[in-house]
Amino acid sequence: MNKTITIDGKSIPFEDGQTIMDAAIAAGVYIPHLCHNPEFTPHGSCKLCTVKVNGRTCSACTFPAMEGQDVLNNTQALTDDRRRITQMLFVEGNHFCPSCEKTGNCQLQAVAYHLNMLDNHFPLFYPHREMDASHPEVMIDHNRCIFCTLCVRASQQHDGKDVFAISGRGINKHLVVNAPSGLLKETDLDVTDKAAHVCPTGAILIKRTGYQVPIGERIYDHHEIDHVSLAAAASPATAPSLAVNTEDSQHGE
């Protein structure tokens, strides 16, 4: 007898050790997320995957699935709040989609489309943030960092390195790299590292690959993020046009 939870009234099987997000993805149910990537330890910080579990607010990516859970995911109230949280991410940094190389391949932008975000709602912070173009092949545009820590986790958990970290407190949080000078060129980051390709926004970009895929022909120009996300999780190997396309387009392969 399989163990199940319900998400929006639909019965979803799960195995012990799975989070609500794991169970949902396996069952083809999309829960919006940005800091989550099934390949790495869940972080639970962006709060886009907020769901109601038996009336209690939980992060689906970190909360364990347990028998008897009645989960609300796709409700108007949650969608409205997720839109606000996405707007917070937009105003906190400097996200100018039309001038960003990542436009069309950007998960932040795609989630915003998915949630029908039509404005910033909140006043913009216009923070002063630096660019780091010191590395021969990879650049960091701190303006677009949303502190999801995916690069941090990818470097530690996949690349066996420690290139990135998040430092600072509160609204002064910022991405730092592991070099005495604080510059990317002095780290042991290699362009083939997972950490260089995992950024959901345009904060970490591969040099000399910009605009090889024209705007209008990019992933989210033609597919909603829920489809892309679920297809990639279902069969990463057979869905190159979706999941790996971000990397491919940046590699220019």
């Binding site: 639970g44 910080s45 886009l48 949280i85 917070m88 105003v91 906190e92 509160g170 609204i171 949080k173």
Partner: peptide, 21 residues
């Protein structure tokens, strides 16, 4: 609160700064 927010999650990191403003 804005000063003491650890900054881990979006609603508190950005929200407390917005609330202050």
């Amino acid at each position: 609160f804005a000063h003491e927010s650890c900054g881990f999650c979006t609603p508190c990191r950005v929200g407390t700064a917005l609330l202050k403003k």
